[in-house]
Simulated scan of single mutants.
Amino acid sequence: MAAGQDDHKFWILGVDDEPQNLEILEEILGDQFELTLVSSGRVCLDEANAAPPDLILLDVNMQGMDGLEVCRRLKAEPDTSEIPVIFVSAYSKLEERLAGYQAGGDDYVTKPFDDEELLIKVKLALATKRQLDSLQQSSTDALDVAQTALSASGEAEALLHFLGAAYPLNSRADLGKSMLDMFECYGLRVVLRIESEEGDLYLSHEGDVGPLEQEVLEMGPDDGRFIDFGRRTLAKYGGVSVLIRNMPVEDANRHARWKKTWK
């Protein structure tokens, strides 16, 4: 049973076809989390569909079905699409990490495991998932009403309100906060990168921004085009990059209208 209550441990499903790697996961995580360890992508899908875990640690290179395909199948099913996935692999090239992100993964850890790095990334992914679950449960009704009310004219009004509020702002932090508030009017959860000579500033509705999402934001196109990663969409406007975590792909009209609004 998935955890989330204070008196329960979070439940992590670890997937790797090398027994020694599963043993290492047990050593690092076994004291703090409830672990189920399996050795194939097929068994991972069966376990996740039977009872969704709080997090999946998924090896990329496995015999049979590889981790990328497993993740794509998890993200395609409503009952498993919201499970955070951290890929684990001996490969660490940027294009490989981005392939994992495009498949629906949330982060990437390289082998051999660094104990501290793995724990930090697991705890960050679980904290983000818990925040999203709490937000969704507490605001579902209000968000349904808001999204119904936000017609094309309502969305344009929200954009104009943001532009009016942003004009007098003097700091990047204030600009970022105003942008987060504006996107929230659309029911969108985002990660921002604001560039300047002082260094890049990263902000999100969930607080922390992981290294993989920072790398994704750095690859944004400069001409305002959108890059889609399943439910996630990346765009860049001048010195501001935006990564939308919950693009409304299930609502074709709203999806197309939102993109048109920002052209």
Score class of each variant (00 low, 15 high):
Ser92Pro: 04
Ser92Met: 03
Lys93Cys: 07
Lys93His: 15
Lys93Pro: 07
Leu94Asp: 04
Glu95Lys: 10
Glu95Val: 13
Glu96Ala: 01
Arg97Ile: 09
Arg97Asp: 01
Leu98Asp: 06
Ala99Ser: 13
Ala99Pro: 05
Ala99Gln: 10
Ala99Ile: 06
Gly100Ala: 07
Gly100Ile: 03
Gly100Arg: 04
Gly100Cys: 03
Tyr101Ala: 00
Tyr101Leu: 00
Gln102Trp: 05
Gln102Leu: 10
Ala103Gly: 11
Ala103Asn: 06
Ala103Leu: 12
Gly104Ile: 06
Gly104Val: 06
Gly104Pro: 02
Gly104His: 03
Gly105Phe: 07
Gly105Lys: 06
Gly105Thr: 08
Gly105Glu: 10
Asp106Thr: 11
Asp107Leu: 06
Val109Trp: 04
Val109His: 09
Val109Asn: 15
Thr110Glu: 08
Lys111His: 12
Pro112Tyr: 03
Phe113Cys: 12
Asp114Tyr: 01
Asp114His: 04
Asp115Leu: 01
Asp115Phe: 00
Asp115Tyr: 00
Asp115Asn: 15
Asp115Gln: 14
Glu116Gly: 05
Glu116Ala: 08
Glu116Cys: 08
Glu117Thr: 15
Leu118Arg: 00
Leu118Tyr: 00
Leu119Ile: 14
Leu119Arg: 07
Leu119Ser: 05
Ile120Leu: 07
Ile120Tyr: 02
Ile120Gly: 02
Ile120Arg: 08
Lys121Asp: 04
Lys121Asn: 08
Lys121His: 09
Lys121Cys: 11
Lys121Gln: 12
Lys121Ile: 01
Val122Phe: 01
Val122Ser: 01
Lys123Gln: 12
Leu124Thr: 11
Leu124Ala: 15
Ala125Val: 03
Ala125Met: 01
Leu126Cys: 02
Leu126Gly: 04
Ala127Leu: 13
Ala127Asn: 14
Ala127Tyr: 03
Thr128Tyr: 01
Thr128Lys: 11
Thr128Trp: 00
Lys129Val: 05
Lys129Phe: 06
Arg130Gln: 14
Arg130Met: 14
Arg130Ser: 14
Gln131Pro: 03
Gln131Cys: 12
Leu132Gln: 03
Leu132Val: 12
Leu132Asn: 09
Asp133Val: 06
Ser134Pro: 02
Ser134Thr: 15
Gln137Asn: 11
Gln137Cys: 07
Ser138Lys: 15
Ser138Ala: 15
Ser138Gly: 08
Ser138Asn: 13
